[in-house]
Amino acid sequence: MSDIRIRARIKDGETEVKCLMNHPMETGLRKDSKTDELVPAHFIQEVVCKLKDEVVMTANWSGGVSRNPYLAFKFTGGEVGDPVEITWTDNLGQTETATDQIS
């Protein structure tokens, strides 16, 4: 079970992809309320979105994106059944990938 939920829907030739990722998105600037120590930075830096192995969009993020990030984008040229792949990589080098077929 992947940590990314994707939904890709096509309408009038435009595919809209919506996705939700599970991630703490710590900026590294926040203090833990109990220990008063800075919580180390841990956030997604790059999200790569592919349609059939071709990169449609690359997002670069700071820790300013909210926890458990939501992302939506649109593209043309997709068809029902085409695979859409989302991959994120965070500042600790962790990575996660998920795919959905356009419906």
């Binding site: 969009m57 997002a59 670069n60 994106v65 909210s66 992302l71 593209f75 043309t76």
Partner: peptide
């Protein structure tokens, strides 16, 4: 700077997300 999105040729000029 919160986010930067590089769009490929087929991408439409639309992005949606949630920010702090």
């Amino acid at each position: 700077l919160i986010a930067s999105f590089d769009l490929g040729e087929s991408a439409m000029p639309f992005v949606s997300t949630r920010i702090k």
